[in-house]
Structures are given as structure tokens and as C-alpha cells.
Design a protein around this nucleic acid. Sequence first.
DNA 1: ATCTATTCCTGGCTGC
DNA 2: TGCAGCCAGGAATAGA
Length: 251
Amino acid sequence: MPELPEVETVVRTLRPRLTGRTIVAATGDPKLTPAAVIGQTIREVSRYGKYISLRFDQGLLLVHLRMTGKLLFDGARTPYTRAEFVLDQGTLLYDDIRRFGRITWVQIYPSQGPDPLEVPFPGFANLFAGRRARLKTLLLDQQFLRGLGNIYVDEALFRARLHPLAVCADLSRPKLERLHAAIREVLDEAIALGGSSISDYVDGNGERGTFQNFHRVYRKTGEPCVVCGKAIERIVVTQRGTHFCPRCQRA
DNA sequence: ATCTATTCCTGGCTGC
DNA sequence: TGCAGCCAGGAATAGA
């Protein structure tokens, strides 16, 4: 499922193909094809959390891929193609098997937490002060930090040697420093490899990522920890499958 | 503030 | 081979 590294990869692959293009027509699900974009020129392609953002003179088109969404330049139509944006050069297809994704026309970005790749450590640490929620719960909350999802939270917590059920406010400064570094590290590595393609994810050119080959805990239940050899465990936190090493990540 | 449950949605997997 | 049942989960929403 597309999280920050996947969305960043889509943005990087689409940016050179879409910047300066004009939308000539839009067809498909009316909820995915706001009329406001017709005739408008794409000025900028960027990422806001897990949103792909197309900036026009009159507003922003925000694309959220959720679980199975794909945004493809000159891609092939499939039975799951839900929307099609005809450009002055090329076509932008929106494909989504499970229809969880959303495309919205807005004037400003929704209010969310800071970007984990941009927030410096002091600000990062301050976010946790006074918060009694579980660590994984807050890291998944886009109002707290924007861009992390289930895969990268599990991978970052493993690297930082922190238990997903730790109470945020109780985390020591060294632990928060480890977490800050681990989040940046895993996101940077994932972006460098084009993201994780577990099932459906592909970039704007239809290419799969390869970071799934380097996951250490996500969906590794029962497999030996790469650090200590103990079997990776799976629990449910906030309705999400959660994978961790019970020895490296003590409660 | 925090937690839980529910809804959306369908391909892929398991077990009989 | 067929098929029922369940699982994956990001975000919005309601309710405790």
C-alpha cells in the first residue's frame, strides 16, 4: 500500500511528464474527475504526506491511492481504470481495484502533522510530550506525523528497537533520537529503491519497487529476527497487523 | 485525549 | 475444480 516512499516515487516519476501539461478532458467516475481541472495547466507535481498533489492556477488536485490506487502516465486501460485525464500530450490514468482511493479538488492542503523527512529532532521530540497513546497508534496518525503507514512504522520501530505498544510520553530522549533517525533512514532507503511493492503498488511508469525485499519484520511472522534470531511476532494494534521482534523490541 | 468498532472494497488465499 | 469464508488495511465516522 502506498505510503510516503511509494507516493514520493510516483511523484518523482510523474513530475517530468506532467509539469506544464494541460488537462483537455476527464472521463470516468464523477467523484474522481472534478470538472474544475478541465482546461487547466499543471504547474507543479509534489507530495503532501501520502497525497500526490497537482497544483494548478486555480487550486490543487489531491490524489490519495489508499490501498490499490495507481496513477499512470500513458498506462494501459484495465477493468479497474476508474478515471482518465486526457492531456495535451499523453494521458493520465487512475486505476484502483478496491476503489478506496480518492481524488479531490481543494484550495489548501488538509491540516496534518509534520513531514517525517523534514521535521528536525527538537520538534519531533516535542510531538510526544504529554501523549499517553501507544507509539504505533500515534505514528499511524496523519494528524501527528504525515506519511507513515503500517509497513514503515513496523520497520522503523524495529530499527529503533522500540516496542509498538510503548507509551509515547514515557519515551526517553535517546529512544526518541533513535526513532527519529530510524524513520528517516528507512524512508530514505525505501525511496532509493522505488518503494515497496507487496501486491499492487507501481510508480507512475508502471514499475514496481524493490524495498519489499529488504523488509525486516513486516509480514515476517515466525521468521527469525535478522539481529537476534528470535521468531518475529504478530499482534494487532489499532486494528493493524503489527510485526516486531520480542527480544530486540522490549515492552 | 484516547480507544474501539464500523464502513468502504475486492483479489487472493485457505480449507473442505 | 469449486466455493464459502476470511484476510489485507487508510481514513472517515460514530460512540464510549
